[in-house]
């Protein structure tokens, strides 16, 4: 079972990765953030972010998981489900 602190921790690490990928150090993301909400998050950036997250958390997303990435929260869920915290 994951705690709120663990979720916040994963979210903070993901936010840091997204900031680096879109070159915007002030971007704030939350569970409901979608790719459309962040300027510069195009399809190329999307793949870059996925690859950076895979490296940071030592995981490999399945294609099924890639199709479920609707929001930042869904990404947090996948990482927590894998126990990579």
């Amino acid at each position: 079972m994951t705690t709120d602190a663990q979720r916040c921790n994963v979210l903070a690490r993901i936010q840091s990765i997204i900031r680096e990928a879109v070159a915007a150090p002030d971007v704030i993301v939350h569970d409901g953030t979608t790719t459309r909400d962040v300027a510069g998050w195009d399809s190329l950036t999307h793949v870059t972010i996925i690859l950076m997250i895979e490296k940071a958390f030592s995981i490999r997303l399945t294609s099924a998981e890639v199709t479920r990435l609707e929001t930042v929260g869904s990404l947090v869920d996948i990482i927590l489900d894998r126990g990579k915290i």
């Binding site: 793949v47 399945t62 294609s63 199709t67």
Partner: peptide, 17 residues
């Protein structure tokens, strides 16, 4: 179907599916 923003991951879809 591959989502609109995941075309660059298409090789992964081909391999896994």
């Amino acid at each position: 179907s591959v989502p609109e923003n995941a075309t660059l991951m298409a090789t992964r879809f081909v391999q896994e599916l």
